[in-house]
């Protein structure tokens, strides 16, 4: 479903701030695969997701989603295939618009926007039904402005928006990192339910190794702009945090890795 082929990305090339964030990155995701992503700060995890989403063009390599080469497509066109939730709860929703209006915008992702009504009565009923899966009571607040919601509520809404129309690929960038532990657990729970229900191909970045092990059916670890550990199937199910740390040290050839990973 997703194919990243030998992708390179360097920021601020030719300046003192030059930073190669992706280095010969390769990844192949099968349809329905739920892959968690870990790695130290600055390993290139967010950059990988941004490269897939087309936030800026990559320097080299190819990105293929569902068989179509999207390397040259702008961000708004790739959006047709993608559902995205960001680390910052403010980034995924329009605060001055109502909950139902935000959902209606998401329902039209990948379609051209016409002069038809921006939301229909039938949609309202559908959204109220869909919001129930979040278990936050938002179904009774369809016309509330999203700016009035808490960070956790907004993140959960963004998740629903990302998956409202089944995306070919769901991209989650530490989407629970900014939330308090209880809310984070709730949003993560909703994530599991939604991904399972629609069998969504998913890439989920997390800074929590336990979450990375507990969720999904594949785990990759990034270091220096590429993937250094890739486990799936039975091996992933049996994985422990200690083993993961050992794998990382081995791959990166450094012992400070432990703190770096744990602390980030």
């Amino acid at each position: 479903m997703l194919e990243i082929k030998n992708v390179y990305k360097t920021f601020n090339a030719g300046t003192v701030n030059e930073k190669t964030a992706l280095q010969n990155l390769c990844l192949h995701l099968n349809p329905g695969e739920f892959c968690t992503v870990i790695g130290g700060n600055g390993a290139g995890k967010s950059t990988m997701l941004n490269a897939v989403a087309g936030v800026w063009p990559v320097d080299e390599g190819q990105i293929i989603i569902g068989g179509e080469d999207v390397t040259k497509l702008p961000e708004y066109k790739r959006a047709a295939y993608l559902g995205r939730v960001f680390q910052d709860p403010m980034m995924g929703t329009a605060p001055t618009m109502q909950i139902e209006e935000n959902l209606a915008l998401a329902a039209r992702r990948g379609k051209s926007r016409t002069l038809r009504a921006s939301i229909t009565r039938a949609e309202r009923e559908e959204y109220a039904e869909r919001l129930k899966i979040l278990d936050l009571g938002l179904e009774d607040r369809l016309t509330s402005k999203v700016g009035l919601l808490s960070g956790g509520q907004r993140q959960a809404l963004t998740l629903l928006m990302a998956t409202l129309k089944q995306p070919k690929l769901l991209l989650l960038d530490e989407h629970t990192a900014a939330l308090d532990p209880k809310t984070a657990a709730k949003v993560l729970d909703a994530t599991d339910r939604i991904v399972e229900k629609d069998r969504l191909t998913t890439l989920m970045i997390t800074h929590n190794m336990r979450d990375a092990i507990a969720h999904g059916d594949r785990l990759i670890m990034m270091y220096n702009g590429h993937i250094v550990v890739d486990v799936s199937g039975e091996e992933k199910k049996r994985l422990t945090v200690e083993q993961l740390l050992a794998l990382f040290s081995q791959a990166s050839g450094s012992d400070e890795a432990d703190d770096k990973l744990l602390l980030s």
Binding site: Y76, G92, T96, M97, L105, R108
Partner: peptide
């Protein structure tokens, strides 16, 4: 309206 409210969200919604 979405563009004025949050460009990032607007682009992510295509």
């Amino acid at each position: 309206r979405a563009t004025g409210s949050n460009q990032n969200m607007a682009r992510a919604q295509g």
